[in-house]
Amino acid sequence: MSLGVVLFASTHFAIRAEKLVKEKGFVVKLIPVPRHLSSDCGVCLRFSWDLKSKIEETLNHAGVQMEGIHCLD
């Protein structure tokens, strides 16, 4: 199964996003931002790529601003 990550401007938004999608029952994990995607020292939200549209929808609906969504393959 492919994995993807959502990047955020700040840890605040990453943790908010994690809380929101976990409340929907999706299995996600906060991980360090992969170096090839950004040089931020923060975290991003890892998810199973087949959940991409549902996660995007949840975060858009709650007004969480995303900095990007990337497939890790």
Partner: peptide, 21 residues
Amino acid sequence: NPGRSGHRLSIEAGRIVFEAR
């Protein structure tokens, strides 16, 4: 240290700050 590293204790610290907010 919240928001500085990607390991579990940093994330847990970040959650505490987030929840206080």
